[in-house]
């Protein structure tokens, strides 16, 4: 196990290096001279040359790349062109907002999706099974941004139950501690604000949860169905265990590996999908941060934002891989 973990960690190095290389070249391939962009249209030629020199843009690409890696190693993500702030400082509240949204969405997706899948497998070919699987099919076919807009139209504009955009009541702002507002409001004992924050997170998290929920429901159903034919399930039932225990304890446990894989993959995809959800719901997360940066051509932010999201994506996949061994000790890592 230990040697597998180290081996798996080492195998990450080329991927992470490759990622920095891809991001580095994407940014450099964007048309236009960054120095010109930073200084604006009316900048003098001398000023542009001076800044080009200062930013090292006239050096060979490998020297620039090496300097970039050196900065990254010092956790220096550069400075935003728009706000002139250090990105490594500035990005934290945005990251926290995205994590909060992703966490709530994944929680909803797992609770609803896995249970719907289990019940569908348990009562397969029942009306519940058909309805749940039809909904799941529609769920994976929905464009997330359309679902978000439909939610806004239904629950905000028509029914007036929930706010359309934002993360908090602007007239009653949350004092941040961790920047996870659900937690912060509780820590400060502000129930009124907590309810505000919950109201704001419902629509975006459900929009974000739909696709993983649908995929999880389908995946859980098919893996549990497969397991239900196994001998040990028949034994469990034969010895008189309640069906609930058989399904939730024996079957689910053995069907869990594929489900876990899907959960891991989906968390990563949620980080990407957050761009759309955050744009629609005005959620101040990394996706929104990145989207604004693209509109302003704020290259350092685009570069770091893309890299950070991809970094978390890779890390989540690593954690899922390592979790396999804990859940199913039969999986031995001998490659």
């Amino acid at each position: 196990m230990f040697s597998y973990t180290t081996k798996r960690l080492f195998s990450l190095i080329p991927v992470l290096l490759g990622m920095t290389l891809v991001v580095f070249f994407i940014i450099r391939a964007i048309p236009g001279n960054p120095a010109q962009v930073i200084l604006g249209q009316r900048a003098t030629k001398e000023a542009i040359e001076a800044l080009t020199e200062q930013l090292g843009l006239n050096k060979a690409w490998y020297i620039q790349y090496f300097n970039y890696l050196k900065d990254l190693a010092h956790l220096d993500l550069g400075t935003s062109l728009r706000t002139k702030a250090e990105i490594s400082q500035e990005i934290f509240p945005y990251l926290a907002a995205t994590f909060e949204l992703t966490f709530v969405a994944m929680f909803i997706a797992i609770v609803v999706g896995v249970n719907a899948g289990i019940i569908s497998a348990w009562f397969s070919k029942s009306w519940f099974d058909y309805v749940a699987m039809l909904l799941a099919l529609v769920g994976i076919s929905l464009p997330i941004f359309w679902l978000g807009l439909m939610e806004q139209w239904t629950f905000s504009i028509q029914l007036g139950w929930l706010p359309t955009t934002g993360r908090e009541n602007v007239r009653n702002p949350v004092e941040a501690i961790t920047n996870l507002y659900l937690l912060d409001t509780l820590l400060r004992g502000r129930m009124d604000q907590f309810i505000d924050v919950v109201k704001h997170i419902i629509l975006p998290s459900f929009a974000l949860a739909t696709i993983p929920m649908a995929i999880l429901a389908r995946m859980t159903r098919s893996t549990v169905l497969e397991v239900m034919n196994a001998d040990y399930i028949r034994t469990a039932r034969a010895k008189g265990l309640k069906m609930f225990v058989v399904v939730y304890k024996h079957a689910l446990k053995n069907a869990f590996i594929p489900i876990l894989t899907v959960i891991g993959l989906q968390i990563g995809l949620l980080l990407g999908g957050a761009i759309l959800t955050e744009t629609i719901f005005g959620w101040p997360g990394v996706g929104r941060y990145l989207y604004d940066a693209i509109a302003y051509r704020d290259y350092p932010v685009i570069q770091s934002g893309v890299l950070i999201i991809a970094f978390f994506f890779v890390m989540i996949n690593l954690i899922v891989d390592l979790l396999y061994g804990f859940i199913d000790p039969r999986i031995k890592y001998t490659e």
Partner: peptide
């Protein structure tokens, strides 16, 4: 390795980056 690296980016994000170029 090339596939690994491309798959390390969420697809919509990578698509946005490519369109930006």
């Amino acid at each position: 390795r090339f596939f690994d690296i491309l798959l390390a980016f969420p697809s919509i994000l990578l698509a946005i980056a490519i369109v930006a170029i």
